[in-house]
Each structure stands twice: as C-alpha cells, then as structure tokens.
Simulated assay, not measured.
Amino acid sequence: MDDGDEAALEDGATSVDIIAGAEDEGLRLDRVLARHRPELSRTRLQALIAEGRLTRNGQPVSGGATKVAAGDRFSLSIPEPKPAAPIAQNIALDIVYEDGDLIVIDKPAGLVVHPAPGNPDGTLVNALLHHCGDSLSGVGGVRRPGIVHRLDKDTSGLLVVAKNDRAHKALAAQFADHGRTGPLERAYLAFVWGVPDLPSGTVDVPVGRHSTARERITVRSDGRFALTHWQRLATYSDAAGRPVATLMECRLETGRTHQIRVHMDHIGHPLLGDSVYGIGQRTKANRLGEKARLVLGRLGRQALHAARLGFEHPSTGAFLLFESPLPAELAALQEALEIEE
C-alpha cells in the first residue's frame, strides 16, 4: 500500500490518500490501515470509519472488516484533535525528561493522576494539559496526555506519559508485557512492618475488588493473576534490638490496583502508613522510638515510592532508565528508623 500526500481540508481535518498494493489483497481494511498509518490506533481508525471519514474509490466505507483489493484508492479524513474535557491548570511538575513523544514525571504523594469523581481537577492530567499545550498531538482523537500506567494518589515516584498515539501504543504494549519478555523495568521501594524470614521472595496470589468494601482490593481465588517479586534491602530494629521494619524493593510482573500494598499485607508485612491495609499499625508503632513515631505520624500516606523506571523509547528504540531518590518525607522516615538500631 502506498501512502499518498496529505492535504488540509476546510474544516481543519487532514485528508490522507492511500492506494492499496498487491500485498494488501484480501486483508481486512482496519488491519491494513493500522499497519500503514501506525500513528493511529486501530480503535481510532475504526472510530473514523464509523464516522464516515473513509472512502474507497470515492464511496463511503461502512466497516473495518471490509476486505482490501489491490488498486483500491482510499481517502481518510482525520479531524483536528478535540480539546480535552479536563481543564488545563498551572500545577507545578517535577519533570525528569521530556521530548516530542513523551514526558517523565516524578509524582509527589497526594497528586491524583486522572480526574475522577471526588477529584474532578487538580490532577496530573490537568497539569500536563497546561504544561504540554500544543505538543499534545492527540491520543485517540483528543488532545490529551496518554496515560499508560498510574500510581495511587498517595504513592510517589516516576511515571511516563505519552504525547501522541504512536508513543501511546508503543508504551502501552511495553507496560502490558510488564517486562516479562520486553525491556520495561520498574522497581518500588516499600517500608513494611516486620522482617521476612527470607532475603527475597515472590507473592503469586490473585487479587480483586472486595465484595463489600469497594474501595479495597483483596486476595480472592476468582481474582486476577498478580505477581510481585520482593527483596530485602535493609532491616530496622526497635530500641530493644527486636526486628520491627524492613525496606524492600518490589518488582511487578502485573499491574493490578494496590498490588504491592495487598500482596505485602497478605504475607504479613503491610506497608508503614497504610491506613487501608495496615491493620494494627498503632500497636506496631508503639514499638518505635519517639522520633520514628513522630515522623510516621506525620507521614499521612503509605510508605511506597516508584524509584526506578526503564523503557524503550517509542521512536528511537533507545533504552531510557530513570531513578528517583526517596522524597523528603520517606527519607526522614528512613533516618528515624535507622536511629532506632
């Protein structure tokens, strides 16, 4: 299939002319278009077809399942990206890296990633709409940042966001693979109660939404497959020399909601500061010294930080690796725990 010239239409849309080649004979139209217009996802192409924006030999095409014949001439009208529904807001961002395809943010605890009921604005998406502006070329036909993974509101650390459809597709594929066969690398630092007997291990139990407490995730036999690898990095003792807490590195092979928090609680080592899953924390906190209790009491969130993020750049193919040190509040917690020893 040969890609022809692009031309601007009066309504601001771009017209793309395509001529099918012999290699396209008998293939589904949506697959062929996706292969030759990789900047558009198949979902986006199917939506354009449904809107009547594609013609074959001058006649409207009704569906993406249409088979292609050699010599067919297609004309695709791609409208300008629509303004995003969330409003742009001038919110300070800690930008680690940025280019025309993506942006890497070091997210602070307390910042919600995407608008939702209860958090209609003041989110990372609102901030990115303001910061990126016209550099967002449209994800799914809307001028918005492409969120390929998320962090809980009260989890800090590294997060990558796509600026266009091509980058969004490539990054989403890497995150769907979770580094099993591809280049994606993610590591979290977690402060947990107690000290595991082994230096490292794997939690392989399914998780799903709690049957009655809908804001909670729980281990359940009919839940979704979830796999977390963990390794002890440091251990901390109380004033009497008894083990009280551990700094772990956690790596995920799946990306379920609250996965690390639920899995660590499941093996008896809930995260410090986790008010949802850290049952009995007040009793555990009584074993800490005065400074550690004070720092933990002020923390106000789970002690979890996305510290390392590596992925293949969607355009250049280069492997990019970013690391984020513990934010001030977690560094203070670590220092206070070390004093106890």
Rank of each mutant, 00 (worst) to 15 (best):
R143V: 02
P145G: 08
P145R: 01
P145H: 04
P145K: 02
G146T: 00
G146K: 00
G146A: 00
I147E: 00
I147M: 04
V148S: 06
V148H: 07
H149T: 04
L151I: 07
L151Q: 02
D152V: 11
D152A: 14
D152H: 14
K153A: 13
K153F: 15
K153E: 11
D154E: 12
S156L: 04
L158F: 11
L159I: 15
L159P: 07
L159S: 08
V160N: 02
V160A: 08
V161I: 11
V161N: 01
V161G: 01
V161L: 09
A162I: 01
A162Y: 01
A162D: 02
N164Y: 09
D165W: 08
D165I: 01
D165Q: 08
R166E: 05
R166V: 02
A167T: 01
A167I: 03
A167E: 03
A167R: 03
H168Q: 06
H168T: 01
H168R: 01
K169F: 12
K169C: 11
K169L: 14
A170Y: 06
A172G: 13
Q174F: 12
Q174G: 11
Q174S: 14
A176T: 13
A176F: 06
A176G: 15
D177P: 13
D177C: 07
D177F: 03
H178N: 15
H178C: 14
H178A: 14
H178Q: 15
R180Q: 15
T181M: 10
T181C: 14
G182K: 13
G182A: 15
G182I: 05
P183F: 03
P183S: 07
P183E: 03
P183L: 03
L184I: 10
L184Y: 10
E185M: 13
E185G: 09
R186Q: 10
A187G: 15
A187T: 15
A187V: 14
A187M: 15
A187D: 15
A187F: 15
Y188A: 12
Y188R: 11
L189T: 03
L189N: 04
L189R: 14
L189P: 02
A190C: 10
F191P: 01
F191T: 02
V192M: 14
W193T: 08
W193G: 10
G194I: 04
V195C: 07
V195Y: 05
V195T: 11
P196M: 08
P196K: 03
D197P: 05
D197H: 15
L198F: 07
